[in-house]
Amino acid sequence: MKLEMKDAPGQLVAALQPISEVGGNIIAVIHQRDEKAEDDRLGVQIVLEIPDDRLNELIARIKDKGVNVVRIGKRRLLYTQTVIMIGHIMHTDLGDTVDRIDRTGFAEVTDMNMVMPAINEPSSALIVIRAVDRNEMEQTMEILRTVAKEKDLLIIEPLEEIA
């Protein structure tokens, strides 16, 4: 997230305060003194983690402090789910299986650990999927279930939190 603020004492702290208020986590603050904009305003880049549904609230709170939000960078995938797949994973086009998730744009396969016993015996794979948030993860799982049905793979999902 790139912010623009007055080059005055207390401004940076004022801009950062709302992040913790909405439950965000600051990973890095990059203070670009040489990149002064017009009117003596100062550019600051902040790398942060925040639940997706709190982002709009954060932007509003930061603006209330008289700080401009210039740009919001790529959303990171914060929601992680691990599933196990059993079947002929390789021979049913693993590339395609992964691609069906990756090309959603809101979820990615970020890790995979596959065990392949003898030929003709089913393989087992642990797959880590990251998605923007819970809803998008549910959509991803729906895609995965469809793929599994097509390819006769067994998907073992985690027991989600209820309520």
Partner: peptide
């Protein structure tokens, strides 16, 4: 009935 020992090991 389709579970593998590998799947349990991965878990």
């Amino acid at each position: 009935d389709c579970l593998t020992t590998d799947a349990l090991r991965l878990a």
